[in-house]
Design a protein around this nucleic acid. Structure first.
Length: 419
DNA sequence: TCTGGGGTCCTAGGACCC
DNA sequence: TCTGGGGTCCTAGGACCC
């Protein structure tokens, strides 16, 4: 990506232990104590660990149960997503006060392009300004990496943690990267790292000696090209999805790890309905319909399988999606095995505005959509608890593919929902 | 007490069409 | 009748990131 990057340094700003820091703002008595933010109960994992907890070997992704065993005095705090969103908004306001070119990566992380702001100071000084403003306005610390490219700035901020700043000038990129383990590169995960290790390389300096063709043969066309670029401190082709925030969302999904493994079909259909309600409501809120519905199942041994079906007519109707999801699940699942997780995802999203109205007035399909819309309105006004699902009154119909279900919606059209 | 939930992108193979 | 190639869409699974 050639954007005159030498003249336009990039700041990568990353909040330090963001979720935990937000929680700790109001709990000064927990300073210095190993604290983690974790939800999900017995089968959950750590969302965020404070630095005292990290020194005990607990990082995000660690199973909560394992963390408790490793550190009996661990303080486990449930996530407060509303507080995270509020803090995130304040953080991004602080970013915007330094440069208008803010590229968000997540709730707690962004690239700041400061080429246009350089008159007001060196990149290092701008980075320190960001850090000071974030602390001042939000009360939590962040770390900043400065480099000519995003991929190096990202590594630099990691080096700066916690509560620091690291500048890697273009002339020092090689020296900075050379000793790193290839697994530290952004986009090189455990699988790619293992493959490289089998090729005899573990450090960036070693891996850089591998020709592009060899990397592509081992890692695939795109993957090989990406690693080749990252080893040189260049941007790489696909860095992160959030680099194109202007593009429309590709999919909307939800999955649930069950409190215990479940083999009962009815129970799984019920879970699927709950997930479908959420997913279709999100699609409708965004003004999107989906042409593909996918269902996923994870077995206790962690093998994960999926089934997807593309529809002739895109939909965001709860009943249609649920009917198809149930069909896919029953087709996919080995009835002799209990499942650990089920999920549903909508893909092939497009704007409702471009979705031609194909249905005649009086078509039962309209009824379903209007039912969904009415429910959406009630929930928007009174909260999602205002409407609860009663029972699935038409299980046989709901289990049929949508075209069959639409032919015979039956008198239950008003019974789907209850107050 | 092993392993969450939200996503994106890539690859490979098959179907289908020209 | 046989053979080949290219393009596109769909599906299933993997890898990765926060």
């Amino acid at each position: 990506m050639s954007d005159g990057s030498e003249d336009c340094p990039v700041l990568h700003v990353d909040m330090d232990a963001f979720y935990a820091s937000v929680v700790l703002r109001g709990r000064p008595e927990l300073a210095g104590v190993p604290v983690v933010v974790a939800g999900g109960g017995d089968r959950g994992v750590i969302l965020c660990a404070t630095y005292p907890a990290r020194r005990r070997g607990i990082t995000s992704g660690t199973p909560t149960a394992q963390a408790r065993r490793r550190c009996p005095e661990l303080v486990v705090v449930p996530p407060d997503f509303a507080a995270f969103a509020e803090a995130s908004g304040a953080v991004f306001e602080a970013f915007a006060s330094v440069t208008p070119e803010v590229e968000p990566l997540s709730q707690e992380e962004a690239f700041l392009h400061v080429g246009g702001a350089r008159r007001t100071g060196t990149p290092r000084a701008l980075g320190e300004t960001v850090r000071a403003r974030v602390v001042e306005r939000v009360g939590i610390t962040c770390s900043v990496g400065v480099a000519a490219t995003r991929s190096v700035a990202k590594l630099a901020s990691r080096r700066a943690k916690p509560d620091g700043l690291v500048v890697v000038p273009p002339t020092e990129v090689r020296a900075f990267l050379d000793p790193l383990d290839v697994g530290e590169l952004w986009g090189v995960g455990p699988s790619t790292r293992a493959r490289l290790e089998r090729m005899g390389v573990t450090t960036v300096a070693d891996a850089r000696r591998l020709p592009l063709e060899l990397l592509q043969a081992a890692l695939g066309r795109a993957g090989g090209a990406q690693v080749h670029a990252l080893l040189r401190g260049a941007e790489g082709g696909r860095l992160h999805a959030a680099f194109r925030p202007q593009e429309r969302q590709r999919s909307i999904g939800s999955d649930r790890t069950l409190a215990r493994d479940v083999g009962d079909a009815e129970e799984l259909h019920g879970v699927l309905l709950g997930l479908t309600l959420g997913v279709t409501a999100r699609a409708r809120r965004a003004g999107l319909v989906a042409s593909t519905v996918a269902v996923r199942v994870r077995y206790p041994d962690f093998t994960t399988v999926s089934r997807a079906r593309t529809l002739a007519e895109p939909t965001a109707t709860t009943r249609d999606v649920h009917a198809l999801a149930v069909h896919l699940l029953d087709d996919l699942r080995d009835p002799g095995r209990a499942v650990r997780l089920v999920g549903v995802r909508l893909a092939g999203l497009r704007d409702t505005s471009g979705h031609a109205e194909q249905l005649a007035l009086g078509d039962p399909e309209r009824g379903w959509r209007h039912t969904d819309e009415a429910v959406d309105r009630v929930r928007q006004r009174f909260g999602s608890g205002a409407l609860a699902r009663a029972t699935l009154l038409d299980t046989p119909a709901a289990a049929a593919p949508p075209q069959a279900a639409a032919e015979a919606p039956g008198p239950d059209a008003t019974g789907w929902w209850s107050w």
